[in-house]
Simulated assay, not measured.
Amino acid sequence: MKPKPSFALLLALLWCLTALAETPHIDLTRTREKAKQALLFSKERGYNSRYCILIDMSLPSGVKRFMVWDFKKNNAITSGLVSHGCGRSPWSGEWSKDTPAFSNADGSHCTALGKYTVDARGYSAWGINIKYYLTGLESTNSNAYARQIVFHSWEKVSETEVYPNGTPEGWGCPAISNQTMKTVDALLKKQRKKVLMWVYN
């Protein structure tokens, strides 16, 4: 005779399935539409027409909302967690994991939405000591360079999804995990044309 599963086990299994079903994920249809727009923009400006970086800030910070998009494959080839700015809250907390504030103002400590170019590679005091300077291309992120908003890694950013928890928040820089940055850095170093980064909500 087979033993009957305990009630507690059934409840645990039901909780896991419910949590899995409720975890937000990238809307692939929406993402592909954004990628299509990004490719047109990149071609018009003479930027890289093979890859771009998409960051969907409409998703909670505990899920993978950072993507390196391959225009040729029409799919993400790398994805991961990415931080957003803490705003008026204390640095490195998870205060606005579901509802970040966005701003282009200096001293706001917020992430700025919009399109950027990923520019020169430099030394970072954070993560794996690599950063990429960013130039904001729109009125919503035109102060990025003056605000020292850069693309870097951060040891506080997890390699795996942590939802319903969030990713620690910085002062507005898009910061990713160390391992994800190693992958992205290896790709970026090979590109001759500027890569577009689009942070949208």
Rank of each mutant, 00 (worst) to 15 (best):
P24K: 00
N129K: 12
A38H: 04
P100G: 08
V68E: 02
R88I: 13
G136S: 09
P100L: 07
L9R: 09
R32P: 10
S79R: 07
R121L: 10
E33I: 10
T78W: 13
E169H: 06
E22K: 14
L113W: 01
E33G: 06
S42M: 11
A101G: 15
N74Q: 15
G122Y: 06
E44P: 09
L9C: 05
N129F: 09
H25Y: 06
D119L: 06
K43P: 08
C110D: 10
M1G: 13
S177T: 00
S124E: 03
A38F: 04
N74K: 15
I55W: 09
Y123N: 08
G166T: 02
F41G: 08
Q179E: 13
C16G: 11
S61F: 03
L54A: 06
E155A: 11
S103R: 03
R65H: 05
T31R: 04
A12I: 09
K64I: 00
L40G: 14
H25I: 09
K194Y: 14
N201D: 15
H152W: 02
T135H: 15
M67W: 02
A38V: 01
K73Q: 12
S158W: 07
Y132L: 02
T78F: 14
W69Q: 05
Y47W: 12
A8S: 12
L137V: 06
I149Q: 05
G170T: 01
P3I: 10
V63R: 00
L188E: 01
